[in-house]
């Protein structure tokens, strides 16, 4: 029996869904395993049957999305918060640090057309079963979730820092040896330390790791010369409204 999967997009950039298309070589064997019951990005097929796995990309930022996420929850065995927007609110949540009217007026001429609420993670409205972190999630972690559901075991996802991946790759440390503002020590792993491996600081796009110590990280960033405003921006960028970062992002 193939796993019946649905792919939904809320407020986000579609980048997470693109990661699935980018699986390329793995797509044929993957399609032996899953049935695409709903995926507007690739098929005009309407959503009819209940799902084994619902992948929901994006944050909830309209009243219609609130209704929809509740409907998806009701009709899915496993609900996957697919990517950072669905888990933490991610980049759309930057506008939670201004008033709703300020955000609307910055972008739109006629705000009376806008039906928008503050973006939030989907767990604000429904219970989720699996969080698949990343902006976007790494292809291997997407496959791991599907395989884990098929095998009926817990997915083997990393919840520790990006530093672990850097050290396993024997990377030159950007933070301690070059005093560059790397978010690795507080950021969830899973990307394989892509940025530091290419001599770029970790921006924190996988959200806070388990037990992230944002307070120490913010003191370290200040110590290497970042202004308090810049420190704030670092924490706001991907997960400013999470419990872990709220204080440092405010």
């Amino acid at each position: 029996m193939k796993l019946r999967c649905g792919f939904f997009k809320f407020t986000g950039c579609s980048g997470c869904q693109m990661e699935i298309l980018r699986l390329e070589d793995e797509l044929p064997p993957l399609l032996e395993m899953i049935e695409i019951a709903y995926w507007p990005m690739v098929t005009s097929k309407r959503w009819e049957e209940n799902l084994d796995i619902a992948f929901v990309e994006g944050s909830v930022s309209t009243p219609r999305e609130v209704k929809e996420i509740k409907e998806i929850r009701k009709r899915s065995r496993h609900l996957v918060a697919f990517g950072e927007c669905a888990i933490t609110g991610c980049i759309p949540s930057i506008r939670n640090f201004m008033t709703q009217s300020e955000a609307e007026e910055t972008v739109y001429e006629h705000t009376d057309w806008i039906e928008s609420i503050k973006p939030s993670e989907i767990s604000e409205y429904v219970r989720t079963d699996i969080s698949l972190p990343g902006c976007p999630p790494h292809r291997n972690t997407i496959l791991e979730v599907i395989k884990a559901v098929a095998l009926q075991r817990k997915p083997h996802l990393k919840h520790h820092s990006v530093c672990v991946e850097c050290k396993l790759k024997d990377n030159n440390c950007l933070l301690t040896t070059e005093k560059r503002p790397c978010m690795g020590p507080v950021t969830n792993a899973g990307c394989g330390a892509i940025c530091p491996s290419l001599n770029r600081e970790c921006e924190g796009c996988y959200g806070p790791m388990s037990a992230a110590n944002a307070s120490s990280q913010s003191q370290i960033l200040a110590e290497i010369g970042l202004s308090m405003d810049d420190v704030k921006r670092k924490f706001r960028k991907y997960a400013g409204t999470t419990d872990e970062y709220r204080k440092e992002a405010a």
Binding site: H160, S161, C163, V164, K167, C173, T176, G184, P185, V186, A211, A212, N213, S215, S216, Q217, Q219, I220
Partner: peptide, 8 residues
């Protein structure tokens, strides 16, 4: 500073 639990 307090430990980050980064594992380094």
């Amino acid at each position: 500073f307090a430990c980050l639990s980064c594992g380094n």
